[in-house]
Write a protein that binds this DNA or RNA. Structure first.
Lengths: 337, 337
DNA sequence: GTGCGTTATCGAAGCGCTTCGATAGGTCGC
DNA sequence: GCGACCTATCGAAGCGCTTCGATAACGCAC
């Protein structure tokens, strides 16, 4: 293992000069710096992580706590983990995983042992136990998602209300006067925070513009071909000419299949917009307009907030909302009759 | 932050005694130990991670490298990550995530900086670039999955050949003389190592017992309702009375739907066994017998091998195979005619 | 009572880095 | 040409822990 000492000897300087040359915290003469850089490259020097943590009081590690509940949607979740890891690396941080039971217990552990500089909280439930934990810990925590009790917390999330309103407005602008929403299975409306926010945003926007709405769950707890078909038929029976989708990828496909079975074409007979989807709705058998959930944006912001908190400028508590963007691929048209 | 010094003072002993009491590396008098434990509990002491790494030359961290390719099956992958994290924690190790581009570059980085004690390799591709990297790094690496070039590597995996053979034997024992296999989409047979192993194990077992086989991919690259139906019809047209499934969860459901459409019941008209599935096949609309992929077993073994490698007793290179287990829920019966 | 072997504890070195204060050497003004 | 002032560099302390060798305290045999 090559140490700073060997680099210093090779470059003919003291170790403090090497340290300053690498950190840039004090000026170093140009040619000295070059000699040091040369030595670093030739020896393949990489500062020892443990020594750095001890002396520098910085670990360059973020904890990522994710309970991974059974009903966590794996692909979406994976996208968030990936986006967080990428954003962290770009800021020179590594990600330490805290899963399962350790998602909670681990928070205390890594805080007490000084293993990480900050904690990123994923997979946030409305009554998340990690809210209380984060307050008890002397480490910056950033929530990616919004719990019920958000007092003094720093949270990041897509602006689901505005996203749903944006979808409704688009359909209303196209001339629709009766719009349905097909939501996640009923159980998700207790387990997660955002489904109710989407529904509320949708219904408020419709009310504001004097348009009637209908709503159906994709199922009770786990959507099946049958429950999806029933939900779609229910919406159609209420006379909607457009549907806003806020549900899983396979449910999207199920809806398209159900519409095809009913002999309805998109957007000729019925217009569709997908809200808060984390997959490519343009790759479905019928490409769908969407206002996607962009993990990269949320996670980048979360990492930036964590970095800011560590640099002394504490981000102000509250929900930092990501603005929704509308992706048009042609699944919205004027109502047919 | 409470240090070992404060604990020592509170207990009225020297810091080395505290250290030995906590590590158990030297005997400590019973009452002394009790006083130390009391002080630790009252002060809420937790050893500083950085100091430990520096002095002890152990980080208690494993790197988990997972490129997360686009075609990685998220739910399966998540199960493996979870299982690895849980197994690591049980052995007092934390998991540091190396994803995306950093799955490769990060290996060198964490090795050079001494951030981790060993590397666990997930999401292994046949021509995985991390094979070469692992050889160049002075850190134990354990592969969860099997690359083509496995020279001098330590790998862990389900014994897919035996699993497939077990499925075939079970069906043959039940009286079937023509068995089909419905596999992953064609592209997976180049991208991953295990689909060909399953197919080979299946076909060899059938040949050994003089039974005819048929094989179909679930699709070209991404299975759809249509490609699945075609595959099932193809197998039925070849006269199979039983099918071994080695494919994704939604494909399983697609197969069951296709059989239902064809008016065939399981196991009355056709017997089904699922091989290498990482989800609960008993929870499908028709419960299916299976020889599941058990992430917990592979990951536990991988962690144990890593721990062993660190304790000096280097595990012998080669593929450490996990024995397959048959889960009977009644989807196999004698052929109908 | 002397000497020896145990056992429990202590002190100190050292892991590799960051950072503070000090200093050598140079530049500039008058 | 002298003092004042920079700038680049150095030395040393210290981060909190592990671990080695030393030692005090004790019991036991002779």
């Amino acid at each position: 293992m090559v140490t700073i000492n060997e680099v210093a000897q090779a470059a003919g300087v003291s170790i403090s000069t090497v340290s300053y040359a690498l950190s840039g915290k004090r000026p170093v003469a140009v040619d000295t710096r070059r000699r040091i850089e040369k030595a670093v490259a030739e020896l393949g020097y990489s500062p020892n992580a443990g020594a750095r943590m001890l002396a520098g009081r910085r670990t360059q590690i973020f904890a990522l706590t994710e309970p991974l509940r059974i009903d966590t949607h794996a692909p979406t979740h994976m996208a968030f983990v990936l986006a967080t890891a990428v954003a962290a690396r770009r800021n020179d941080y590594d990600i330490l995983l805290l899963t399962d039971e350790d998602a909670q217990a681990g928070m205390r552990r890594v805080a007490a042992s000084g293993l990480v500089d900050a904690i990123l909280v994923l997979d946030v439930a409305p009554d998340d136990a990690r809210v209380a934990l984060s307050r008890e810990i002397a480490l910056p925590s950033i929530f990616i998602g919004v719990p019920n009790d958000r007092e003094s917390l720093v949270c990041v999330d897509l602006d689901f209300e505005r996203a749903a309103a944006l979808a409704a407005d688009r359909l209303i602008d196209a001339g629709h006067r009766s719009i349905g929403m097909l939501g996640h299975p009923e159980i998700s409306y207790e387990r997660s925070n955002f489904p109710p926010r989407v529904r509320a945003g949708f219904e408020r926007a419709a009310e504001r513009r004097g348009v009637t709405t209908a709503f159906r769950y994709a199922g009770q707890s786990r959507p099946t071909t049958a429950t999806i078909r029933d939900a779609v038929r229910g919406l159609l029976a209420e006379g909607v000419s457009a549907i806003v989708l806020h549900c899983a990828e396979d449910v999207h496909q199920g809806v398209l299949d159900a519409l095809a079975d009913a002999g309805l074409s998109v957007p000729g007979d019925i217009s569709i917009v997908s809200v808060g989807s984390s997959f490519d709705t343009a790759a479905l058998s019928t490409p769908l307009d969407s206002i996607p959930l962009v993990p990269a944006e949320s996670c980048e912001l979360a990492v930036e907030l964590a970095v800011a908190a560590l640099s002394g400028s504490a981000p102000e508590p509250g929900v930092h909302l990501i603005a929704p963007h509308y992706l048009d691929v042609g699944s919205v048209a004027a109502p047919s009759r």
